[in-house]
Nucleic acid binder design. Structure first.
Lengths: 301, 301
DNA sequence: TAGCATCCATCTGAAAATCAGATAGGCCGA
DNA sequence: TCGGCCTATCTGATTTTCAGATGGATGCTA
């Protein structure tokens, strides 16, 4: 005879419930069934799993080790059944999500943890496109869902939903001239501005442009590295400044002028024509429910 | 009905052999048995595993994914049976090996890879004791096998076997005075020597001592870092110099005197009284078979 | 210490699953 | 078109699993 799953179930239940009788009750089987299953398992494996002195059977060292192995086998079967159930429900077996770095990592991690709990059988691929456009990835079918900073007017095939507005903050290096005092609007124009590079061309690309001289850099994180070296100033979201490893070397100078939080829209985007499965719908709903106002407080707030 | 291992076996065999009939031949069962098992599995999972158009059944996407899961379940059962067989053969479920850094990492990795292949069910714990004595770990039962640099006379409870002699090399920093020309014996005495610190006291500790001024450092790797800074000279085995990340900053000056490879004995040690299982015996044999002459060539040779 | 509840092992017959063999039908190359 | 190979399904036999009953042992408790 070979090791069967019923034997392993009886074994695990016995170990978990402390007795063969209790295991039988838990599995809705007779005590005799459990007893013989465990006994057969022991002869099959050639190893004693329980010591039977005393009132309750107690695991031998071998039993303790094999219990873990048995649990793994049963867990894998349960997992297989779960995967099959996902197929039956036409859940995507794979989901590609492209997220701009503007979206806070902490919120993203929380959301994806929830996702993993709800859809343990979906292979998730996360993209963090640097210079590539998230909307283009979604348009080309390379991503199912995207979270992006709205740069241009979106093509009509793309469905979108505004998640909120991310306030940007003016930062420069500690030794930068702007760090000296209160900053005037005209001051900004005189120094080099560092901006996030995008592939697409259009008016939105220039919206935040203030200075005469601009460097285009592919990531806010890299921008902070350059800002720290005094290469220029930049507009960067709070949470990226906060989580940066170089934040001690950065300065956030006070401003003399109003309305200067330069908000940027974060959009959730998807392809209207491509049918989305339960996993994509769920994730879209969760992204939408997580308003930006729920996000962790900005520095000094 | 629930998913059984027989169903998974029939499924995997069918996928691997390309047809239900071939699977039946491979499993020494009738074709009808395979056919019904697979069909039952499909109804249990609610998912079509094969498309039956044409001559041979061909996996559906779901079947392809679930095939991997099925293999995992079967592999885990095989693993469980293997663990049980190890227990039956009284193989250790755990083995602690303490290896001195003098033993080359490459050889050690090769040996342990072989070990993992032979004893996949043994939990191996590797210790790389710095200042602690390997012999003491073995004596106290904290390690089952040890590989150590012989420092003192070993206590009688310890069994040992000499694996070979590791030649040491004189190294100093590139800017160290000794790097200038050919080194005389008397030159060594004038400069600071860096030696490996050991807890035990005794004459062996001082055997390699040459200089008047000595610093004791807990690891050859750390010694090389200090040597690189010009803090002193040291005797270090070839392979550690070769694998060091700072080897470009080191100098190996030529010597004016003979017999200057300062060989150090590497010993395999174990506790005589404690019974050793098959895994420990196997590992001891393999360590012994790997003579030091088999080791990779030293620098320049 | 005796009684009682609970546990385990084992037996027995019934229920269920598995299997081999047979049969019928489909696909494909010669 | 035929023959070989395949699959699905049926049937009865074999094997396995199961529940219930019984006897013996343990431990708690009055």
């Amino acid at each position: 005879m070979t090791v069967s799953l019923e034997q392993l179930e009886a074994f695990v239940a016995s170990a978990e419930h402390g007795s063969f009788s209790a295991a039988g009750r838990a599995l809705r089987k007779a005590q005799s069934a459990i007893s013989t299953q465990v006994a057969n398992l022991e002869t099959d494996l050639g190893v004693m799993l329980f010591r039977r002195e005393g009132r309750h059977p107690v695991l031998t060292p071998a039993g303790d080790r094999l219990l873990r192995e048995a649990r793994v086998v049963l867990d894998r079967r349960a997992h297989l059944i779960g995967v099959a159930a996902s197929f039956e429900a036409h859940v995507e077996s794979r989901l590609v999500v492209a997220i701009d770095e503007l979206y806070p990592e902490a919120v993203q991690a929380e959301l994806l943890a929830e996702f993993a709990a709800h859809f343990p059988h979906v292979e998730l691929e996360l993209l963090f496109p640097m210079m590539e456009d998230v909307s283009r990835l979604v348009l080309d079918g390379k991503a199912d869902i995207g979270v992006m900073w709205r740069q241009e007017v979106l093509p009509p095939e793309i469905g979108f939903h505004t998640l909120g507005w991310v306030p940007l903050q003016l930062v420069c290096g500690k030794d930068h001239p702007l760090a000296e005092g209160v900053v005037e609007w005209e001051d900004l124009k005189r120094h080099r501005q560092l901006m996030v590079a995008v592939r697409s061309e259009g008016p939105e690309k220039q919206r935040l442009r203030t200075a005469a001289e601009v460097w285009w850099v592919e990531s806010h994180w890299v921008i902070l590295q350059l800002v720290r070296r005094g290469i220029g100033w930049a507009l960067v979201p709070d949470h990226i400044i906060r989580e940066s490893t170089v934040r001690e070397d950065l300065a956030i100078p006070p401003l003399r002028f109003d309305g200067a939080d330069w908000p940027v829209a974060l959009e959730l985007v998807w392809h209207k024509q491509r049918p989305s499965g339960p996993a994509a719908r769920w994730l879209r709903e969760r992204f939408t429910a997580r308003r930006i106002s729920d996000w962790p407080d900005p520095i000094g707030g």
